[in-house]
Amino acid sequence: MLFKATPLIFTGLSVAFAFRAGMFNIGAEGQMNIGAFAAAWAGFTFTALPWVIHIPISICFAFAGGALWALIAGYLKARVGSHEVINTIMLNFIALALVSYLVNSVYNVPATVRTPEISPSAHIPRFDSITGFFSGSPFNMVFIIGICVCLLTGYIIRNTPLGYEIRTSGFNRDAAEYAGMNIKKLTVLSMTVAGGFAGLSGLNFVNGYKHYFELGFSEGTGYMGIAVALIARNNPIAIIPVAVFFGILEYGGLTVNTLVPKEIITIIQALTILSAITITELFRRRVSLE
């Protein structure tokens, strides 16, 4: 269940971070696919590296893949003002088609929809192999990376000048611009970093679990990240418990499959999102009326 929570931490953080800067990133699904593919590519292309170099390189590739994909939307928003919501949705589909092409036609393992296995030096260790706890679970160290990234992002947003600029541009673009902040630069930067976070979520599957990239691995985690960010009210620290909660829901779907079908879990998740947005909105209005 913590294994299921790990990618949600990253996609949730991705959506929340973009939201803090006043943008809506629906593109986490595509960004995580590109990031995961990039990590897998780095994993099976470089083979003669020690793990202390190979793992950081894989992490950088995952981040860069997602970041580059989001950069397109960020740049278009800053340069011609086209709306990031539609652009990121379109980029999701383009990303899925692109990785499908790469996996089926360029780096294919016959009779599968996956890439070759990454070299052992790029494996991110599982918890049970280090501590003995969580034995049999694919729960791995990417979770720790996720927590660190959340804490760091929380710190940057709250306590640094850059974080202040990001928050200001999110609250009121015009005011931020009037105060002399470079809105275009902030837009591109925030969107790119948000994409990078989503890209990192691919590490959990590629480097921590199966050790290859497989089509369809993301299973809507990018979209679920929107729900996580929403319920965590875009607070980077609150993302962690919310992601764990969603992880429990999904894990429940896997274990009690005979009692509660997996489809019911999907339905519950959707209803959670719907009631969360409806109730918070109605509640907020009630408070402001009084």
Partner: peptide, 11 residues
């Protein structure tokens, strides 16, 4: 509106 739409798609 976007979140509602996405959630309804999942539903």
């Amino acid at each position: 509106q976007i979140v509602s739409g996405i959630a309804l798609n999942i539903l």
